[in-house]
Every structure is written in C-alpha cells, then in structure tokens.
Design a protein around this nucleic acid. Structure first.
Length: 429
RNA sequence: GGAGAGGUGGCUGAGCGGUCGAAAGCAGCACACUGCUAAUGUGUUGAACCUCAAAAGGGUUCCGAGGGUUCGAAUCCCUCCCUCUCCGCCA
C-alpha cells in the first residue's frame, strides 16, 4: 500500500504506474473523493463522540441516547465509505523506480550485463539437466510422479548432497562479515556489512498475514488448508517479512538482515505444459532467501549490495549469467525495483531465471506496520528488500548442465568441492 | 484432544461499570546536588489519526482481536486468537 498523500500530490505518477504495471484500472478521482468523504465523516463521528463523552460525564441519559442513535447512522455510512476506499487503495501498486524500464512484458526487460564465459562443448551437444540427472540416478521424476504427482522429484545421491553443499556455502557467505566486506568493496558500494541472521522460518502461515505482505494474490498459486486457515509459504520471504510487523524499531538497529532456508510451495496454476520435465518448475523446491529491513535512504544501495551478493555466488559457482532489469509490465505488484538473474543453461541453450531481487520501498511495511523510530523522535515506515540467494532446483539444474562432460560424468564446481569432498559426482547407476 | 489460569503502557504489575490513557515500581529523559563513576532529590516520559502554515493547544480512538449490552466498558456478555500449567499424544 502506498501513501494516500502521495496519491493526492502525484495522481499522474500513480495513473501511469498503474498503466505501466498493467494493474487493474483505478478511478483516482473517485479514490481521492472517497478519502475526503471518509475524513469528513470521521470528523463528524469524532465530534459526536466528544458530545457523548460530555453527556456521559454529566450523566445526561436522554442526551446520550439521542447522540447514540445519531452516531449509529454516521458509523454505518463511514464503514461503507471506508470499505470502498480500501477496496480501491489495495489495487494501487507500488510506484516503479525512475530507472525501471517501461514495458509491457518480459520481452521489454533490459539486460544490464552478461557475465561469465559460456563453455564450448565442441562436437558434443550438451544435454538437458533432467536427461543427465535421470541418466545418472540423481533425479527420479517417474517415481515422484506416482507418489506425489506431476512437478515433484526425488533428488538422490550426490545431487542431494550438492543441495546441502549449496546451503552451507550460501550460509557461509551471508554470515561472514569479512566476505561481505570484500563483496561490498569489489562492487564499490558504501553499505553496512552487517551479517545476516540465519533463520529457519515457519512453512505455514495465516492467509491474513500473507495478505499483509501483499503476497496472498494470486490466491490460486497458494496451497490452502481450510480446516486450519493456513497457507503454505511460497518463499521464506513470506514468513520472514512479518517478523517485525506492528513494531517500531530504533534507528540504530538498522540494517536488519535475515537469511532464511525453507521450502517454497507453488501450485503452478496456469502453467500447465510448461517445463514439465525436470527441476525447473516444481510444486516444491528449497530456497535460501534474503530479507532485509533498512532505513528508507538506504533502500537502493541495499538492493545493489544484495545483487552483488547474488553475483558473487554465481561467480563462485562458475555459472554464466545475466542481470536483467525487470520492466514495469513484468515486475511484481509490491515492487519498486526488480532485478532478475538468469543463469545460462547450455542443455537448453538459453538463460533461465534463477534469482530475483525485489526492492519494496515502504510498500509492505505500510501494510505490516513496521516502522523506524528516528533519533529525532519521528517515525516512518521501514524499507524492505527480499531476494533469492539459491533456488535449489534451478541451481542444481544449471550445475548439471554447465558441468557435464562428453563422457557422461558431471564435475563439481570448485566452491562446492570443499563441502562435498570430491571433484566429480558419483553416479547411482 | 481434555481440564484449568491468564492476556493492561518499554518492562513488572494494580484496577474489575462513571472520578482510568490507566496506581505503583523499574527503565528512560531533564534539572539539581554530591568529587567519584553512581547514589539522592525534583520534574518528566505511550501510540495512531484529525485540527493548525508550524509549534503550542484542542479533539477522537487504542487496556490481545472482533462483535454486543449500557447514557457510560480495561471492567459485564459472545466469538476468535495467543500464552502458561496439568493430563493425553507424539519427534
């Protein structure tokens, strides 16, 4: 949710944001009119309440009764206006940053840079990750299909071990201040290098709280347990973000950084037939996720730092990737600025999205009521960032494809060898 | 799942139909005092929203959440959520 004052002062910016983000059209004039109306009604209600308090203290029973009836009518009107106001307010997306490309869909995303050398495989034509993985016994999709249904897989043997190695490596990076300092220095960023706090967050949450994260929609994408009124998280972000809801936090405690490890559950409604094989599009995958809370003035540099961390990891793994600035029509509803990292998949001969970095500004914080208390006594909403560090399925797929050899074997990236104690993956068949 | 107790300001905790945004203590802040690193004294300190150019001032709301009873609710009633204790069940 954005500030109604901002909407009143900048209606045209809001209108073009809605249009550029392909949001549902909102009648801004009606929204502002409803805001005036609700404020006016609120003032009337306040005045009657004042008179009612006065009557009560004077034990004026008759006057009190009369005011009570008057109030009931006003409150009914107010409630109605308020509902209509909120219904429009929640349709207003976050305003894209000035450097966000304007575009209708992903074809208009802007590629900022391509990094890393794409391997030449010579006469050998590289296979897709699921061919490699199933061939060596690392991925069992057939049995998962029978046991769990489509879009599930068993990760076996060294591929399972590699997931834990990736977890260890990424946790090491985020909790070691020396490493973070190097990353910041190399990227030329003046930013706090305060380490991330590791978190294993809850995997289920109340829909009402997910809604405060502006992540409940599209509801078709969520697994919902009606009996318990719980949804499965689609990302650790969903339960990391509300860690500070309804809190006001002193200025000196920022930045606050968390790294969560959790499964991500996605129904993949509406993506039937897309990426049906392998690990690219799963109902469940595990993910290392960053979530940070910063002072408003530090929001953009924090995101730059997060992107630098993501690139650091991809470089360590020796995976070629590109950094993409997501255009207005393709970016998330609560996002102010979004970057994706697409990793090169030689088997598919294309880049696939493996990372995303979302800067929300104060959009989520306003709904969550997470505030910063300034040293001068004022308070304002904190700014929030969330981003992938490792999405396991897709990263494992990228490693299989990039590290395959003509003889059918798969080497292990140097950065993971330490954690796996070997240089080549051991086939199960 | 069964039985019981409870949710009040930054914390502890009193209040249990009007004088309560709320005692007291702690913590914080300011001033004073003491030459010793903290003690003592006095004062002061919740949040959101509206009004105001702003400050001051004024108003409304907030005692887990929502609804109800009443002229009047932190206090009574209902629903829900959460915490704790005991039992059961489990890892």
């Amino acid at each position: 949710m954005i500030d109604i004052k901002f909407i009143r002062d900048n209606p045209d910016i809001v209108r073009s944001a809605i249009q550029n983000k392909k949001g549902k059209p909102v009648d801004i004039d009606e929204l502002l009119r409803l805001n005036d109306e609700r404020k006016e009604l609120r003032q009337k209600i306040d005045e009657i309440n004042r008179q009612r308090n006065e009557a009560a203290s004077k034990r004026d029973i008759e006057g009190g009764k009369r005011l009570k009836e008057e109030l009931a009518a006003l409150e009914a009107t107010h409630l109605d206006v308020e509902k209509r106001f909120v219904a429009l307010m929640i349709l207003i997306p976050n305003i894209p940053s000035p450097d966000t490309p304007i575009g209708a869909d992903e074809s208009e995303n802007k590629i900022l840079r391509e990094v890393g050398e794409k391997r030449s495989f010579g006469s050998y034509s590289p296979r897709q990750h699921f061919e490699i993985g199933e061939g060596l016994g690392f991925i069992n999709s057939d049995r998962a299909g029978e046991v769990s249904g489509a879009r599930f897989a068993y990760l076996m043997g060294d591929l399972a071990m590699m997931q834990f190695a990736l977890l260890n490596l990424s946790m090491k990076i985020l909790t070691d201040e020396e490493i973070l300092k190097e990353i910041a220095a190399r990227a030329g960023l003046k930013v706090s290098t305060k380490p991330f706090i590791p978190v294993v967050p809850p995997y289920m949450m109340r829909p009402a709280v997910m809604n405060r994260m502006a992540r409940l929609d599209p509801i078709d994408e969520r697994y919902y347990f009606e009996k318990d009124d719980e949804v499965l998280i689609g990302s650790a972000e969903h339960t990391l973000g509300p860690l500070h809801m309804d809190q006001t936090i002193p200025e000196e405690q920022f930045p606050i950084r968390y790294v969560g490890y959790s499964p991500a559950f996605r129904r993949e409604a509406g993506s039937y037939g897309k990426d049906t094989r392998g690990l690219i599009r799963m109902h469940h995958f595990d993910k290392v996720e960053m979530e940070t809370f910063v002072k408003p003035e530090d929001g953009y540099v924090e995101q730059d730092f997060i992107v630098a961390i993501q690139e650091h990891l991809l470089n360590l793994l020796g995976l070629p990737y590109r950094v993409v600035s997501i255009c207005t029509g393709d970016m998330g509803f609560p996002d102010q600025r979004q970057f994706d990292m697409d990793t090169w998949m030689p088997g598919q001969s294309t880049y696939r999205e493996t990372h995303t970095s979302d800067y929300m500004g104060g959009f989520q914080a306003r709904r969550l009521s997470t505030k910063i208390k300034r040293n001068d006594g004022t308070s304002e909403f904190v700014h929030m960032n969330d981003a992938t560090l490792v999405a396991m399925g897709r990263t494992l797929a990228a490693i299989l494809e990039n590290y395959q050899e003509a003889d059918g074997s798969v080497r292990i990236p140097k950065a993971l060898q330490l954690y796996m104690g070997k240089e080549v993956m051991t086939p199960l068949k």
